[in-house]
Design a protein around this nucleic acid. Structure first.
Lengths: 140, 140
DNA sequence: TCCTTCTTTAGACATAGTCTAAGCTAGGAT
DNA sequence: ATCCTAGCTTAGACTATGTCTAAAGAAGGA
C-alpha cells in the first residue's frame, strides 16, 4: 500500500477507488505533475474518472496537509506528495526540469527579527534556478 | 523621472506614453500588483489603454530583466519592479499580505554540491510564510 | 430496507493570459 | 513635406487552468 494512502487514511478520510488511483498516480512518479497530467495518467487506469474529482481530491489532500501545492511557473499548480519531508526545489530555466533538493540549513533562521514585520513565521521554501546539464551543453 | 523608466531606456526600448504609465504605476506602489490590478490603475490615467498592451509590456520588462515576475499564490502573476535589489518575500497565509524581506545569508551558498545535480545554479529566492499581526490577533 | 451523508460526474462557468489582424505612430529617407 | 517601414497599440477571439452546480451514485447506520 502506498505511503500516501496510509497517511490519508489516518485523517478518517474515505479511500474511494478514485482517490486511491489519484494518490497512487501522484506518488508513483518522481516528477511533480499538474492536475491535468495526473488526470491523463489516472484515466489510463480508470477511464470514467472525471476532471472535477481529480481537482477536488488534490485540493482535499492539500487541505489535509499531506500533499504540497507548488506554484513555481505561474502556469499551473503542481502537486508534491512528499509533504512530510522538508525540501526545496531546483528548476532549470531552459527546459523546466525540476528536482527536489535539501539545503544545509533552515532558511527561517536567516530572517532577522527586524525583518519579520511582526509576523509569526512558520516555514520557508527556497526556489533555486539555473541550467541543467543538458541545457548548459545546448547553450555552448 | 522614475528609476524604472531610466533603466528601461538603457535597453534602447522605446518609451511610449502607454509604457510610461505602466512603468510608473508598477513602481509607484509598494505592493506587488497583478497585471489586471496594474491595468485597473493605469486606466485611470489613460482610459484608452488596452489589456493586451499591459500584458505585452509587463512581459517585455520581465524579458529585459528589469522587473521580476512572482508566482507565489498560483492564481495570478505579480510584478516586482525591484529587480536590481536582491530580496525575498514574506507572505501571510491568512490574508495574503506580502512584504519584501532581506535574509542574512545567500541561499545559493547553502546548497551542497552533491545536491546540485550538475546544474549551474544562478539564483535562489526564499518564500517565507506565516501569519501577520492582524491575522494572529484575529485567530486568538 | 430505508435514510442520510458523502462522493462522483458532466458540463457550465470563471479567471488569467495569449494571439491575431487591423489600424496607428514615429522616425528616417528622399 | 511625403512616403516608407518598423514597431506599437487595440479589440476581441481564443486557450488554458481551475471552480461551481445540480443531479445521480455509493456506502454505512438505524
Amino acid at each position: 500500500m502506498s505511503d500516501l494512502v496510509t497517511r490519508l487514511r489516518r485523517h478518517n478520510w474515505r479511500i474511494t477507488p478514485q482517490r486511491r488511483v489519484i494518490a497512487e498516480t501522484l506518488e508513483g512518479s518522481h516528477v511533480h505533475f499538474t492536475a491535468d497530467e495526473i488526470l491523463e495518467r489516472a484515466v489510463e487506469r480508470m477511464p470514467e474518472l472525471s476532471r472535477a474529482t481529480v481537482y477536488n481530491t488534490l485540493n482535499e489532500m492539500v487541505a489535509l496537509g499531506e500533499v504540497l501545492e507548488l506554484t513555481l511557473d505561474g502556469r499551473s499548480k503542481r502537486y508534491d506528495p512528499n509533504a512530510d519531508h522538508e525540501h526545496h526545489h531546483l528548476i532549470c530555466e531552459g527546459c523546466g526540469l525540476m528536482k527536489d533538493v535539501h539545503a544545509m540549513a533552515d532558511p527561517v533562521d536567516w530572517l532577522p527579527g527586524d525583518e519579520r514585520h511582526g509576523f509569526a513565521v512558520t516555514r520557508a521554501s527556497i526556489t533555486y534556478r539555473g541550467l541543467c546539464p543538458e541545457c548548459q551543453a545546448a547553450q555552448s
